[in-house]
Every structure is written in structure tokens, then in C-alpha cells.
């Protein structure tokens, strides 16, 4: 084998190219409908993250990291958690109690609409962002990045680079 192509065979790549959008959209659907049907932030976030993991597996690291960089994923990870906390603290600010469902208390809506259940869909979105970003980070860190001593200093390098050095 000379000059191995990053990623898997043509069949996998083609199928991934067709499917990735649908998987992503399905994840978003699960996040948005979490308050009406089984699903929610965690399950949807895992599905969204699996899109990126599938991209990494079939096209190699560069392609997936081009879509969602490592720094970006880390920022989104923090952002999701902060958004979730912000919603919880807004309950304190508006209604006086942490995690109060202030939208439902102040502007009640009927059941089984897309925007029912007050803050729960918003929480689901925040959790979805957090879970998707952090799962992708976990996968990238476990699969691609290694710690190595370079002249006494610790550095994060990728496996491909290390393979070349050997």
C-alpha cells in the first residue's frame, strides 16, 4: 500500500455523504421534540455527535475537524452548560426559585404544541449542544490525540504525526 488515503473505502464514504445530513437532522428532531415524545437533549445530542464521529471514521480526522474544530467544540461544550445554568438562574431572577419553569408559570400554553412545556425545550437545546460537543471531544481525544514528551515538555500531538516520527 502506498500513500494510504485517510478514512475508509469508497462505499462507506459515499453512504456517509448521503446519510450524514439525515442523521444530523434526526438528532435535531429528537432534541426539539424531547418534551413531547421519548428523546430529549441527551439522546439527541448523542445522535448529533455520532454524525461527526461517522465523518471522522469514514473521511479521516481533517474533514471532521474542518466541520467542527477542537477549540470550537470545547467552546460549545462550555456554552451549552452555561446556557443551561442561565435558564435555571433566570428562574431565580423572574420567579424567585432556581429552575422554576417561569415561562409556563407566566405565559401558560396548551399541551402538545411545539412550544409547550415552558423552559423544558430550551433546557433540551442547551443539553443537546453540550452533549454533542462533549461527546465529539471525548471521541477525538481518545482516538486521535496523544500526550508525548518533546524535549522535557508535554505536548499534545496526533497519532498520525507520531507515526511519521517513528
Amino acid at each position: 500500500m502506498n500513500e494510504r488515503q485517510p478514512g475508509m473505502s469508497l462505499v462507506v464514504q459515499t453512504v456517509t455523504r448521503w446519510l450524514k445530513g439525515f442523521i444530523f437532522l434526526y438528532g435535531v428532531y429528537v432534541i426539539l421534540y424531547g418534551h413531547l415524545s421519548p428523546g430529549g437533549g441527551f439522546a439527541g445530542g448523542v445522535i448529533v455527535a455520532s454524525t461527526f464521529i461517522l465523518l471522522t471514521l469514514s473521511f479521516g480526522r481533517e474533514r471532521a475537524l474542518g466541520k467542527l474544530g477542537k477549540l470550537m467544540a470545547s467552546e460549545l461544550d462550555s456554552f451549552g452548560a452555561l446556557l443551561f445554568l442561565l435558564i435555571a438562574v433566570l428562574g431565580t431572577a423572574i420567579g424567585g426559585t432556581f429552575f422554576l419553569n417561569f415561562i409556563e408559570k407566566n405565559w401558560p400554553t396548551g399541551n402538545f404544541h411545539l412550544f409547550s412545556a415552558g423552559i423544558i425545550p430550551l433546557c433540551n437545546i442547551a443539553i443537546g449542544i453540550k452533549v454533542a460537543a462533549s461527546l465529539f471531544m471525548i471521541f477525538i481525544i481518545l482516538a486521535v490525540i496523544r500526550v508525548q514528551e518533546v524535549r522535557g515538555k508535554r505536548k499534545l500531538i496526533t497519532t498520525e504525526k507520531r507515526r511519521k516520527e517513528r
Binding site: F42, I138, I141, L142, R146, V147
Partner: peptide, 19 residues
């Protein structure tokens, strides 16, 4: 979710230990 956190931490440490 908690199990996922522990599992990923364990796997990360196992990989480092193997290195």
C-alpha cells in the same frame, strides 16, 4: 450520563497507562 463520564475517564487513563 454519569456512567458515560466515568467510562470515558477510565478509558483515557487506561490509554495513558498503556503508553
Amino acid at each position: 450520563v454519569i456512567g458515560l463520564g466515568i467510562l470515558s475517564l477510565m478509558v483515557a487513563i487506561a490509554i495513558r497507562l498503556y503508553e
